[in-house]
Simulated assay, not measured.
Amino acid sequence: MRALILVDIQNDFLPGGALAVPEGDRVIAVANALMPMFPLVVATQDWHPPDHGSFAANHPGRSPGEVVTLAGLQQVLWPTHCVQGTRGAEFARTLQQGPVAQIFVKGVDPEVDSYSGFFDNGRRRSTGLGEYLRAHEVREAVVLGLATDYCVKFTALDALSLGIATTLVEDGCRGVELRPGDVAAALTEVRAAGGAVRRSADLLG
């Protein structure tokens, strides 16, 4: 089976949100157009507790963009975002949620971040997404959402590591670009791991 994975299309990552990704709202139309083509659609959702260790506000004297050590891993500090139960954590209003069969929350452990939709950053705990796809005999996944250089990249790489043929939809993603070139580097990394990078028109055609 083929599955579409929608990564973190949430209000806080859209223009005006707490961690707005430039042009993040542009991915919504691509997601809505592609969903009818897939027998299975799933979504990931950043779902942080207020005391999450990735929030700069929880590290006195630190600012977003700085790097600290969290759970033994290097961690970029972010503005407080996608806090459980807040509007910022909700999916974009114009995203069609009817086709979404299952939602997988991530980033729930305050001690470790979770960019990937499959595992936390230390790969110590599964979100259940991999097990769900395996149970549905998914052999191929198409990934899009926010942001290219973080959660989309790591979701695609983890899918590939689990033996799932994976395509990243380039125009269905937008990046943070903390450093110029981060998005291009993310696409190169996905290709190097055996993934494909395509545009939505190729899939729709």
Rank of each mutant, 00 (worst) to 15 (best):
R2F: 01
L4G: 14
V7S: 06
P22R: 13
E23Y: 11
E23K: 14
D25R: 09
R26L: 14
V30D: 08
L34S: 12
M35K: 06
M37F: 10
L40D: 04
P49F: 02
P50R: 05
D51W: 01
H59W: 15
R62W: 04
R62F: 04
V67S: 04
A71Q: 03
G72E: 06
P79D: 02
H81E: 05
V83P: 11
Q84W: 06
G88P: 09
T94V: 01
Q96K: 13
P99F: 13
V105H: 14
G107I: 02
G107V: 03
V108Q: 15
D109G: 06
D109R: 14
D109H: 12
E111H: 11
Y115D: 07
F118M: 13
F119H: 15
R125M: 07
T127I: 09
H136K: 14
D158E: 13
D158N: 14
A159M: 09
L160C: 13
S161P: 00
G163F: 01
T166K: 07
T167I: 01
L168T: 15
V169M: 05
C173M: 08
R174P: 07
V176C: 03
G181A: 12
D182R: 08
A184L: 10
A184M: 03
A185Y: 05
R191W: 04
A193N: 05
A193L: 08
A193I: 11
G194H: 10
G194S: 10
G194I: 12
R198D: 00
A201Q: 14
D202H: 06
L203G: 11
